[in-house]
């Protein structure tokens, strides 16, 4: 896969998932994931999230995850976009688009990318409710989901063509 096939973006601005999907190259299978900010959490109502990140490491980490996906599966394109800063409830926070010849690769790669992003990419959410703000705790279920991919790992997936 060419270097242009791997794209990562970290931005404050809101985005339109339909417009992002239109930019993906023509291919047999396209799988996209959009994550939205829910208005409720275990801790109560959520008005908005404040997303902190580690500039530099964030982009490197997303690039490494995209690259690892291209090593593990035969893909035509990978695009990851993640917002930072203040994000209102109901707005989209993350988007992943994967193009492949067949659905199996596209589904697997998209899920892998999200599971890896959840446990490796340096983002931190702070929930703003009606009265207070609190840091979101990491969830064990996210770690278990990411670990599933290590069990099925075939060899060491180092830096791929996008690295």
């Amino acid at each position: 896969m060419s270097t242009e096939g791997c794209r990562v973006q970290v931005q404050e601005a809101a985005f339109n998932p339909a417009q992002l999907q239109d930019l993906l190259p023509a291919s047999g299978a396209v799988v996209t994931f959009t994550g939205n900010v829910r208005d409720m959490s275990a801790a109560g109502s959520v008005h908005a999230l404040q997303l902190e990140h580690y500039p530099g490491m964030t982009e490197r980490s997303l690039q490494a995850i995209a690259s690892e996906a291209t090593v593990r599966w035969s893909l035509r394109a990978v695009h990851i976009l993640h917002r930072v800063g203040r994000i209102e409830a109901g707005e989209s926070i993350v988007w992943v688009g994967v193009c492949a010849d067949h659905r199996g690769e596209a589904f697997a790669a998209c899920e892998f990318i999200m599971d890896a992003l959840k446990t490796r990419a340096p983002f931190w959410k702070k929930e703003h409710g009606a009265q207070d703000a609190r840091w979101v705790e990491a969830r064990d279920s996210d770690i278990s989901r990411a670990e599933r991919w290590q069990l099925t790992r075939t060899g060491d997936a180092g830096m791929g063509p996008c690295g």
């Binding site: 490796r120 931190w124 990491a138």
Partner: peptide
């Protein structure tokens, strides 16, 4: 922990000029 913007282990060596970071478990996505 991260060294030069890659996740690190306790035994990861440090040298002059390195950028080290400490942070809680990540919660993006």
């Amino acid at each position: 922990m991260a060294v030069n913007q890659s996740l690190a282990e306790p035994a990861t060596p440090l040298s002059a000029g390195d950028e080290v970071a400490f942070f809680p478990p990540v919660t993006g996505g």
